[in-house]
């Protein structure tokens, strides 16, 4: 009757094997390819050199910039929205926002581009409306296809994503803390400054990192919206896959891919350091 217990690590083998095959091996292939000279098959740094200069360097610049902006601003706005929803007494509203966040956070690509072309494109609804009251957005330099235009579009899935991921963390804020602070004479601003926000900080940071990753790897929306006018790294990588490749540069796409991995990895390391600081009280 006595059953021999399997060693504990056996249970994670299928999971680990799958991850290794479908994530580990492809990534290694990309990394190795980044250092291969397609002509000779020998090892070279040329791909990395090209990937970190000129138009590709600018691509990294805009990608990182756009991702930072659309992690921080929608992160803050999503936090405010989530707090407002939490404070609301309406259960129906809470349910509506929770489900809507799930849907909108996964919304992207051409459909999303369409929504905003119809709204903020050069003949979009809002552009026409404000023109009717005498403000010419495009005349004033605004363009949906610019950095800031794309940032506004990204907010459409980034804000719901923030609401989705930060809401569970908000449940960790105990009502007693607010009441105790009130009781001790703190104004709402003082409560948020000394207690509410510091308590939320670790979670907010983690969520913003997720938002950065989501924006950094966003491909479909930008590709549909700008058709290449705004140089972003994922678009550039995609163009290598679509076969628009100069001879001898076949592996630059792989080098760009390695660059993206490095950027996110560095950011995660920074995050881990920062996390240690803001969550000192947790340990």
């Amino acid at each position: 009757m006595r059953q021999r217990e399997l060693p504990a690590w056996v249970g994670v083998v299928p999971f680990a094997a799958y991850t290794l095959v479908f994530l580990g091996v492809p990534v290694v292939a990309v990394v190795l390819g980044a250092f291969v000279d397609p002509a000779t098959g020998g090892v070279t740094m040329a791909n990395v050199g090209i990937a970190t200069s000129g138009v590709y360097l600018r691509g990294f610049g805009s990608s990182i910039g756009l991702s930072l902006v659309t992690a921080l601003v929608p992160g803050v706005l999503g936090l405010v929205l989530a707090l407002a929803v939490r404070a609301s007494p309406s259960l129906r509203l809470k349910r509506a926002v929770a489900t809507a966040s799930g849907v909108f956070a996964n919304f992207g690509g051409v459909p999303l581009a369409f929504l905003f072309v119809a709204t903020l494109g050069s003949t979009g609804l809002v552009v026409e409306l404000v023109k009717a009251v005498g403000v010419d957005l495009y005349g004033a330099g605004f363009s949906l296809y610019s950095f800031w235009g794309v940032a506004i579009v990204y907010g459409y899935f980034q804000i719901p994503l923030m609401v989705l991921v930060i809401t569970p963390a908000l449940d960790g804020l105990r009502p007693h803390w607010r009441e105790a602070a009130d009781n001790l004479g703190a104004t709402p601003v003082q409560y948020w400054r000394h207690v509410g926000l510091p308590v939320l900080a670790p979670a907010v940071l983690g969520c913003m990192l997720l938002l950065f990753g989501s924006a950094f790897s966003a491909y479909a929306t930008t590709s549909a919206l700008t058709s290449g006018s705004l140089a972003l790294t994922p678009i550039q990588i995609g163009s290598f896959l679509n076969g628009n490749v100069l001879s001898g540069q076949e592996n630059v796409g792989r080098a760009l891919g390695v660059g993206m991995i490095v950027v996110v990895a560095v950011l995660m390391a920074l995050y881990a350091l920062l996390q240690r600081r803001v969550s000192r009280w947790l340990r």
Partner: peptide, 24 residues
Amino acid sequence: VLEGVTLLPIVVPPVVLIIGVLEV
């Protein structure tokens, strides 16, 4: 550890992953 592993797909953007997958 597992939590860290499940974060990896966020580190590796889909556009990068598909290059590797198509290659191997």
